[in-house]
Structures are given as structure tokens and as C-alpha cells.
Design a protein around this nucleic acid. Structure first.
Ligand SMILES: [Mn+2]
Ligand SMILES: [Mn+2]
Ligand SMILES: [Zn+2]
Ligand SMILES: [Zn+2]
Lengths: 138, 138
DNA sequence: TCTTAAAAGAGAATAAATCTTATTTAGGGT
DNA sequence: ACCCTAAATAAGATTTATTCTCTTTTAAGA
């Protein structure tokens, strides 16, 4: 919880109970939760937190690069507190999304694109969306 | 327009003016349009098409693998009529999304994952989301 | 041509996200 | 420690994208 505070301070953000709760929720839940799921989780200790506050805080975190959005095919956004470069595994028959870290792959891609490039495009970031099936229940 | 009809017939779908218009709109517009954009486009010739019909038709097309959704960080879905395997270039400062076809890359990735695999996961499809900036105005 | 299941139209309903305004609060300055 | 104020939150209305329900229309096979 102290390093959560530090994280906010580093970005020059005021430390509020709501921000701490939301960030803590995101950091302890690696399943890329929705805003709704975060609210449910923190309502236990913060019964009066407003929906708008949650969305506002999430936006603030994104702006300050504390969290990221995870794009899905559903009409609901999901959030990710892990900022180290990583890819995602999407289950093709459920909403499950897992992180996939692979430095060897990243190096391979980097080498490939440094050599080849993409015409008229300056690459900033490459992420894989790997669709498939998990062979083990989480 | 005839091969659009054929496409529907192949999937066992009834040929309706609405479906033809929507699929034609999608195939002539490579910018990964939203449902709203498709409606705007086809309203010129189909002024009475219902919003619900457009969404219903799009869903039907997705079910029958005639089109695909394109995931974005905005709260609006985008659609893609190109079904051949390809990746996407996302502009980090606008809504522009372009196709990126690279068979050499696909082969590289395939070789990599055949050799390495992902533990407890059966890969079905790999797509790159390349974020960056377009260096030439479209 | 007739029949009927499927599709479309109209508009209400929902769900996610955003906005507005009043109130509260964090934290720097005194 | 206390003030001050800009920033943050609460509450609830609003918007926007999407879905649903129900009625009417239509495609296409018999
Ligand atoms: Mn939405
Ligand atoms: Mn929505
Ligand atoms: Zn992640
Ligand atoms: Zn595409």
C-alpha cells in the first residue's frame, strides 16, 4: 500500500482514499477487470464511492500512465495495472484475458521491424493479441 | 455487387437490400468504419434503414465470418470486411486504423510459436496491434 | 402463386460511460 | 496546527452505443 502511495506521488497526483482503493484493486486483480468489477471490489471498504469517480480516476491513471486500457470485442472497457511491456492471451470462448510476457519474442520483433520497417509509419509500440483456448482452468 | 450476393449465398443467408447495402459499404470503405458511419453511407440510398437492422446485420455477418470486429480503445466498435489474415496499424493521435499485411512476419511468428508454444494455451490466431504515427496523410 | 420462416422497422430499453453542479478534501502556505 | 484553494468526489442527470421487443414486411422455396 505504501508503494501505491509512492506511485501516485511520483506522478504528482493527490493521494485520496478513492485513488488508493482503485489502484490497489487493479494491482491485486490481474484479470484485467472492468470498471464495474473494480467498483464491486472496493465497495466493501468504500460503500459510497461514486461511479463517475471510478471512471474519472481510471482516466486520470491512464493519462499519467499508471494503467492501460485493454481493448476487447465487448462493449465494455477493461483495465490493466501492469505497465511493463507485455502481450495478451484472449480466450475465444470466455472473457478471460491473461498477460503474456516474452522478451525473446520482443527482441525478434524489434529486430524484424528495425530491418524491415513499415512504409510511412513510425512504430511506437507493438502488442500481440493472441486468441485461443486456455488448456487449464484458472 | 454480384460477388457480394454470392458471398451471402455461400453462407446460406437471405439476400436483402439492407444486407447488400451494408456489405457493399463495408467492402468499399477500408477505413474500418463504425456502425454509425455505415449508416450514414447507406442512408443516401436507403433512407429508411433502421439502426437496429444495421447492428443485427453486422452481428449476422460476424457470426457467419463475413466480417470482423476491430477492437479499439474507444467506446465504439469498428468493423472490417477484409477476412484475409492481417494486422492493424493504429494511429496514436487519431482514429485512423490501417491494414498491415506481412506474410514474412506471419511465417516468422508461426515458426517461433511452433517451436516455443505458450504453456497451457492453444493458439488459434495471432494479430499485431501496431501503435504509432502515420507519416503521410491519407 | 402461396406460404412461412426469416428479416426489417420502429421505438423502447439497457448498459457503459460522461457530464454537471454542489460539496468535500488534500496538501501547500502561513 | 490552521487556512486556503485548487483539485477531487458525490450524486444524479445525460449521452451514446448497442440491444431488445414487438409488429409488419419480405425473400425464396414449395
Ligand atoms: Mn459502450
Ligand atoms: Mn454501451
Ligand atoms: Zn495485461
Ligand atoms: Zn483490417
Amino acid at each position: 500500500m505504501d508503494n501505491i502511495k509512492k506511485k501516485l506521488q511520483e506522478k504528482g497526483l493527490k493521494i485520496t482514499p478513492q485513488r488508493l482503493a482503485i489502484l490497489q484493486a487493479l494491482m491485486s486483480n490481474k484479470s484485467h477487470p472492468t470498471a464495474e468489477m473494480i467498483m464491486e471490489y472496493i465497495r466493501v471498504n468504500h460503500p459510497n464511492i461514486a461511479t463517475g469517480t471510478v471512471y474519472k480516476v481510471l482516466d486520470t491513471f491512464i493519462e499519467h500512465q499508471i494503467i492501460k486500457k485493454v481493448q476487447t470485442e465487448k462493449d465494455v472497457m477493461r483495465y490493466d495495472a501492469i505497465m511493463d511491456h507485455h502481450h495478451h492471451l484472449f480466450c475465444s470462448e470466455s472473457e478471460r484475458i491473461e498477460d503474456y510476457v516474452d522478451i525473446e519474442l520482443d527482441e525478434l520483433l524489434q529486430a524484424y521491424f528495425i530491418k524491415k520497417g513499415i512504409p510511412d509509419f513510425k512504430i511506437e509500440d507493438i502488442r500481440l493479441h493472441v486468441n485461443g483456448k486456455f488448456l487449464r482452468i484458472e
